[in-house]
Design a protein around this nucleic acid. Sequence first.
DNA 1: TATTGAGATTTGTCCATACATCCAAAGGCG
DNA 2: CGCCTTTGGATGTATGGACAAATCTCAATA
Lengths: 258, 258
Amino acid sequence: MTTKEDDLALDRPTDGLPRYAQIQKILEDRLVSGTYPVGSLMPPELELAVEFNSSRTTIREALRYLRERGYVERRQGIGTRVISDASRTTFYQSFGSLEELFQVAVETYYVVMDIKTVTLDAELAELVGAKAGEEWILINGVRWTEPGGKPICYIQSYVPKRFEHVVAQFHDHQGPFFALLERYSDGPIEEAVQEIRAMPMPGEFIRQLGLKPGSWSLQLLRRYVTQSGVLIASFNWHPAEQMAYRMRIHRAKEAGSE
Amino acid sequence: MTTKEDDLALDRPTDGLPRYAQIQKILEDRLVSGTYPVGSLMPPELELAVEFNSSRTTIREALRYLRERGYVERRQGIGTRVISDASRTTFYQSFGSLEELFQVAVETYYVVMDIKTVTLDAELAELVGAKAGEEWILINGVRWTEPGGKPICYIQSYVPKRFEHVVAQFHDHQGPFFALLERYSDGPIEEAVQEIRAMPMPGEFIRQLGLKPGSWSLQLLRRYVTQSGVLIASFNWHPAEQMAYRMRIHRAKEAGSE
DNA sequence: TATTGAGATTTGTCCATACATCCAAAGGCG
DNA sequence: CGCCTTTGGATGTATGGACAAATCTCAATA
């Protein structure tokens, strides 16, 4: 007799995530990988429900996420059509130094949510200008509209492994916090926000450093990571925000060259 | 024996909207009017389910909307807390003429979704500088990031009634289209977008005028409404977009005054 | 030929229920 | 007093079912 856990154990750990979130990820993988090509119709809900051995409600919860992220559009009487493979909403911005990233971060209320080590695959290696197989540090962050406001983009920053001793201190001191956020960092940003706003602050540590809640992770990073290094940030955000950001950078450069 | 329609017939028409949408509106009214003050906890789901004689599923669907719009935040184990009465995300922008609005519209991919006549209440009257009780025309529109992109703000524009003969032609020629949009214009913007992108275009009419799909309603407005008049537009959009827009206007003025 | 209508398909809405999970407050215990 | 456990209440997740509404296909009809 197979349990439902078994049914979902395809090629990724279940993580203890809710069932709809796991299905969500699998479907997202298929969309990004082209298993469900742009322009085509995804299998109907009932078919997916059978495949994943779940109820239609659970499938719909997963599909809701795909719709909110702009992957698919759904029409009563027709089905679920793929309208994006998401790669179109991603662009890459290269920074010459960490300081440069932090400058952007301060301007835009950037908050670090998660830090982990990743092994570069071919695509990532080309992106950051390194060799595949090398280990780099991945920093997941969120950009905010304003303190206490809403997050508007999700930022992945890659840093050479030689900075590891720096970010290691985060995990030592902030273990529970990052564990909490790690669980939500792959979910809807709205959820992550809730948790950030409501999280039990590592108050003592913050007081020691004289930091303000909400900006502490950024300032910590800034304090420890001061050496410059090649850094690539992958932005995945709302097209309008992306455009606004580009225009701002463009204007800043124009103003600087005058 | 009372039907469920009866239960919801409080002080607004049911419109044929789905039940969760009606509850949505009622709750939104209470949030805006202060019945549920900012900072307080809303009644729990079960309590609302009893009040509206609905299931918890339906209530949750309504609350989901309130959360997505930034009205409330929900915490497992605590409840639904009011964090905004939405008036904070609304600001008013005064234009000297319709042309000025259209200039903004062209720059920002503005699309008209619905036009109807409203009677000014005291607040609206003060806003537009007219007397309460007067009838004005309300134009509901959406601003887009780019053609085919996502909508980023919902715009309500008020125009003096003397332009009615102009917009009346819309209803004559575009009846079915506006009827369709009217149904969705009060719902989540995402839904409206879906419908716009997928709607059966009034192709013949568009061809006659030599218009491009997606911009036809704007161009129609522009063609017919040429007289200038006082116009007040109420913007209700994402804070970040609002800020970006203000900065753009500010820069444009600076550039113009140099 | 063009239109209408029936039927099948698919998503939308809604319900009743159950259990899990999280939180806060109350109470027990050292 | 301080720490731990219990308990009640709230949202989160999930199931299964039912019917409504929109759409497409295809056959029947004017």
